[in-house]
């Protein structure tokens, strides 16, 4: 046995194996963690700052800030506070926000579901990619474009359809109008919003439907189902909660939309339940409308309104996200 071989035979020195990260890794993790906290920090900061600025008004108005219909800022021509007390209530605007968003959802969601079903189960392969691209492109359109187009192009045909609805379904209180003034109505704003939420709801519904377990689809066909009976028996029950989540995500988008609604809607401080009448409101467009010439106090009230809008959309979005992620996780 040579010396070299002997040397090799000796047992290697044991070494400690540790899972403790090196210093460089510790720094790396700390930096990345700080970055990852940014969303938490920003969301908290939004709530805190809007709350701080709006606190005075919220404390003074109390619950009537949400339920009151009047928005009156008492201000003299020289900019000092006027004698009559200012009143701030976003009740009418909240109702308007919910009405326009609900119109948007009830028009946009059926179309989106149909589009998602078409893309998943009906579309020929050759045009599927193209259609998906078109719908994704629509999601990238800026909201001011929808506003401008809605006002100039959609409004005339929207008015036409509103008149048709009024003529044939006017006996339903929802479609009744007290004065025949059909332009710039919540219905038309809802139409624009419906078009704006179609891409996001479609892409979520598509995602959810594509997760349907393949064996169940094939089982349905094996039992002799037609395409429609297969969809009704397998796809729709499976995707139900995900699609509801997608619809709520659309609802949240529609509630927070500002510029498009402001361009199309005629903003009136009344609770208007006649959706075809040209009068309505929306919290976001209230803020835009009043911000330009607002007094210091009114700005605080607008911050409070912004806080309400933030909390409302955040709640809707979180619920929606829970519903969507539940369905997508249990898929194939």
């Amino acid at each position: 046995m040579t010396l070299a071989e002997e040397k090799r035979m000796t047992a290697p020195t044991p070494r400690v194996i540790t899972t403790k990260p090196r210093t460089s890794d510790k720094i790396f993790r700390a930096v990345i963690f700080t970055g990852a906290l940014s969303s938490l920090v920003i969301l908290a900061a939004i709530a805190i700052f809007l709350g701080l600025r709006g606190f005075e008004i919220l404390a003074r108005e109390g619950l009537s800030f949400i339920t009151g219909y009047e928005w009156y800022s008492s201000i003299n021509s020289d900019g000092s506070a006027g004698e009559d007390p200012s009143v701030y209530g976003i009740g009418a605007m909240l109702i308007g926000t919910i009405i326009t968003a609900l119109i948007a959802v009830s028009i946009g969601v059926p179309i989106s579901i149909a589009a998602a079903l078409y893309l998943n189960f009906y579309a020929p392969n050759a045009i599927r990619g193209f259609l998906v691209g078109v719908i994704d492109l629509m999601a990238a359109f800026p909201s001011i474009l929808f506003g401008l187009w809605g006002f100039n192009v959609l409004m005339p045909s929207g008015e036409y359809w509103a008149k048709l609805l009024h003529k044939y379904l006017g006996w339903i209180p929802l479609f009744d109008v007290s004065t025949p003034f059909f332009s710039r109505s919540p219905f038309i704003a809802g139409l624009v919003l419906a078009i704006m939420i179609i891409p996001i709801v479609t892409s979520i519904a598509r995602e959810v439907f594509s997760q349907t377990p393949l064996d169940r689809i094939q089982a349905a066909y094996a039992l002799g189902a037609t395409k429609w009976t297969m969809i009704r028996a397998v796809v729709l029950p499976f995707g139900y909660s995900g699609v509801v989540g997608g619809a709520m995500l659309g609802l949240g988008r529609a509630m927070g939309e500002t510029v498009a609604v402001f361009t199309v809607l005629n903003i009136i401080f009344q609770a208007n339940f006649q959706i075809l009448l040209g009068a309505g409101g929306n919290v976001a467009s209230l803020i835009i409308l009043k911000f330009g010439e607002a007094s210091a106090e009114e700005i605080k009230a607008l911050m409070a309104a912004g806080l309400m809008l933030f909390l409302l959309t955040l709640l809707v979005n979180m619920l929606a996200d829970l519903l969507v992620s539940r369905t997508v996780k249990q898929g194939r």
């Binding site: 969303s39 920003i42 809007l50 909201s143 927070g256 939309e257 959309t313 955040l314 929606a320």
Partner: peptide, 8 residues
């Protein structure tokens, strides 16, 4: 956060 209205 992706659902926060842009106005906010």
């Amino acid at each position: 956060m992706s659902g926060v209205p842009s106005i906010v």
